[in-house]
Design a protein around this nucleic acid. Structure first.
Lengths: 253, 253
DNA sequence: AAGTGGTCTAGACCACTAA
DNA sequence: TAGTGGTCTAGACCACTTT
């Protein structure tokens, strides 16, 4: 015997179908909650459960006082991570320039804010840098990448303090040296290891990136090594899923 | 003048704090809804809003009739995508073997189910294969990767039909040829392009992978080309965020 | 059988947006 | 000012798990 699905599931299914079939267009307004109450002969709370379900799927976005709308997908920024810093056009602060040019191509204004501090590393960073999280220090460059006033990604770099002590890296300026930040202090990255994970954003990330509901993030963690496999840096980039594609080109040679 | 946060936000903040400080341990049970109603002097719906908020953040998981629990993070499977198929240990069906050995190392039973069909490609696949989505056909190998009865990932491969017509690729068996599936039909992949995006799973994916609430997925799309940059295959892997790490090793040489 | 979370109702007032 | 979604209450019954 098959009992029926809950009423708010059926309402959500019905609306989802309308969205997927294009009867409700991206950016278009859904019926108001009051109208849905009448259409489906359900209580307002039940209707709200259905709408919440769609919101969690990332299909709908609601605004107090405005209404509920079919979420439109942003044209994502494609970010190519397969290039080694030492081989790029030699103008950038770790991908910063690549990112800036991608953004500029679409006629928008890229910008980034940098904050530098000296801190004990979080455990996942300490592990990768081979440091003692209790005793060793790291220089942290926290950046927020902004497009036309809108925050787009967070990028935090961690350097072992002893490697960069007294260098320009410790200044809160936007360092743009030929060959990247590390080259500017005489360090050469020969190898990277990238680790990508996916999760829901923390409250802090939701606020700093002003993320809409149900927007997951990719966490891109890049550990850079010199030619002797000594770790030089960990860079952690938080990329909201609704506006980014991570790309790698891998070739046989 | 600063008005106060909604009550269910404050309840959620309080519980989140307890989780983050370890006062509520991973896997441990939260107070029941009835107890929370008494503790915070709020209605049950308000308490449920707070719990839902934590559930959406992936911190809490609830089971009907059982209670609510602090979600424990799974030890994720690390999946290295930087190796070219032609250079792997020559035993595998596109990473299948690598995946199987990762899983087997932790003492678990990997398995995969394969289904083969011939279909018109979805537009994103057609684009990458240089096909006409209205006229051309693709051979589709849909696989579901399973660990100890639990589904772990979905991996669908699309091949231009004319390239693989009449080959073993069209049989619904688990093809394990030296050098991979494509080599078995005389095709050599010289280059890959990987594109990784992040989104919430569709309803269908939630069911096929039996995903807990608030689990985002990574979509890993690999397009393989031969030495003349002719596209040979698109493989789309759906990786639930709570059980996977995507890794790339990139070196200067 | 008891206890848990899941569904649903009917209503109230508030905060925000747009006309 | 009217209309929208956001918060909150108080209560009911159901479905599932555990004992």
């Amino acid at each position: 015997m098959r009992e029926q699905r809950p009423r708010y599931h059926r309402i959500a299914d019905d609306l989802r179908g309308q969205i997927e079939r294009g009867e409700l267009e991206p950016g278009g307004q859904l019926p108001t909650e009051f109208e849905l109450v009448e259409q489906y002969e359900a209580s307002r709370n039940t209707v709200r459960l259905a709408l919440r379900r769609l919101t969690e799927e990332g299909l709908v976005i609601a605004g107090q006082g405005r209404g509920s709308f079919v979420r439109r997908s942003l044209k994502p920024a494609v970010w190519d991570w397969s290039v080694l810093e030492s081989r790029t056009r030699h103008t950038s602060d770790e991908q910063g320039d690549q990112w800036a040019s991608i953004v500029a191509e679409s006629g928008r204004q890229p910008r980034q804010e940098v904050r530098v501090s000296i801190r004990r590393p979080p455990t996942e960073v300490a592990e990768r840098l081979g440091l003692d999280p209790e005793k060793d220090l790291t220089v942290v460059r926290e950046r927020i990448r902004i497009v036309d006033q809108d925050p787009y990604a967070l990028a935090d770099s961690y350097f072992p303090e002893e490697l960069v002590r007294g260098t320009p890296l410790m200044l809160p300026e936007d360092v743009s040296a030929p060959g990247g930040v590390l080259a500017s202090v005489g360090l050469v990255q020969a190898r990277y290891r990238d680790e990508i994970t996916v999760r829901m954003p923390t409250r802090a990330e939701v606020e700093r990136l002003s993320l809409p509901a149900a927007t997951p993030v990719a966490v891109h963690m890049r550990t850079g090594y010199d030619e002797n496999s000594r770790p030089l840096r960990v860079m952690i980039t938080i990329l909201p899923g609704d506006r980014h594609v991570i790309r790698y080109d891998v070739s046989a040679e």
